[in-house]
Amino acid sequence: MTGPPRSVPAPDPHTLVRAHTVYSCVMGSRAFGLDTAASDTDRRGVFVAPSELFWRFDKPPTHVDGPAEEQFSWELERFCTLGLRANPTVLECLHSPLVEYADGTGRELLGLRGAFLSRHAHRTFTGYVDGQHRKIEARVRRGAPPGKPAMHLLRLQLALLDLLRTGTLTLDVGEHRDELLAIRHDETSWAQVEKRLRTLRATSEAAAARTPLPAEPDVRRIEDFLVRVRRTSASGPAPDSAPDSGPDSGSGRRPDRS
């Protein structure tokens, strides 16, 4: 009599990232145009867990730290869910100017960048700014300089204003680089930073009233994409969906501010 089938162990999270990454990019100061000689290289990515792993009681991870230092990846469904909620980190990941790797699925995901954008970004970006503002205030009360957190706080407020005005999310800070680096190096007082934030907040509120962004993201397009990816995974890779090269090969644009 044949016993029950033996369960095959699921691959460890780092193996999932290594074998199933569809998109990876550089984020952080290098993507924002704020890097210096001492800047780290932060990498973010998206992997697609094989569909058969979802048939188990023990589901694949929604996100993975590593395997490299300063590397973080989301499973595709989690990434799309957060993007539809206008999560600032995920939206910025989709718009990084420093794409290191994208296979066919990754390129299609990038082609959907605009479908994730909506007026919800005003609420989520503002909520994140408010939360970070409170943390920095507590930091300043303890006698610590606001420094890098204050720089990124103002950077995000500037990015939101530009997004609301143009309907496009741009990461590079451009002409604001010197202003932001002065904040990072504590050459600008926290009182001055707060004054600048209040001005930008008021301007953003006005821009939100006439933004070209749609009221809602295009959920149907993104869900159709996710379902097709899951079906392809369940039936085996399609001939034209093979990756151009592995995520460690450095294909695509490389960071050039080091």
Rank of each mutant, 00 (worst) to 15 (best):
H185D: 15
T168I: 08
L156M: 14
D186Y: 01
L117T: 04
L197E: 15
R142Y: 09
L109P: 01
G104A: 04
W190I: 09
Q192V: 14
D162G: 12
V193E: 05
H185M: 07
L160Q: 02
H152W: 06
L153Q: 03
R123W: 14
F116S: 04
E100R: 13
A208V: 04
L153V: 01
E205T: 00
W190D: 07
G174S: 07
R119E: 07
L181E: 05
A207I: 00
A150Q: 09
T168N: 05
D178M: 12
S204T: 15
E108D: 00
A121C: 05
L163D: 13
L171I: 13
T168L: 03
Q157T: 08
H176D: 07
L109F: 02
I136G: 10
I183Q: 03
T168W: 12
V193N: 02
A182S: 10
R184V: 08
L181K: 00
H122M: 09
G127H: 03
R119K: 10
V140F: 01
Q157M: 10
T188M: 06
L197H: 04
A202W: 13
G147Q: 07
I183A: 03
D130R: 01
E205L: 02
R119P: 10
H185N: 12
R113Q: 08
V173C: 00
E194H: 05
L180E: 04
D130G: 02
G167N: 07
R210F: 00
T105E: 06
R134S: 09
Y128W: 03
T105A: 10
L197F: 12
A102R: 11
L110I: 06
A182M: 01
T188A: 10
L158F: 10
E187P: 12
T203G: 06
E194P: 05
R165H: 12
L163S: 03
R113D: 03
L154I: 14
L163I: 12
A144I: 13
D172S: 15
A191G: 14
R134T: 11
A159F: 07
F125T: 02
G106A: 04
L109Q: 07
L109M: 03
A202Y: 09
L200K: 02
G143D: 09
K195W: 07
E108C: 04
E187F: 02
R165L: 13
W190Y: 11
H120F: 03
P149M: 10
D186M: 01
G111W: 01
T203K: 04
S118I: 15
V173F: 12
V193W: 04
E175Y: 08
A209H: 01
D162R: 14
T105I: 15
L180F: 08
A208R: 08
E175T: 05
G131L: 14
A202Q: 02
R139D: 03
L200F: 00
A159I: 00
G114A: 07
L109T: 01
L110E: 02
E100G: 07
R142Q: 15
W190M: 04
E187S: 13
T199K: 10
E108M: 03
H152I: 02
P146K: 03
V140I: 12
R177A: 11
R198C: 11
D103T: 14
K148V: 00
T168F: 08
L164T: 05
G111V: 09
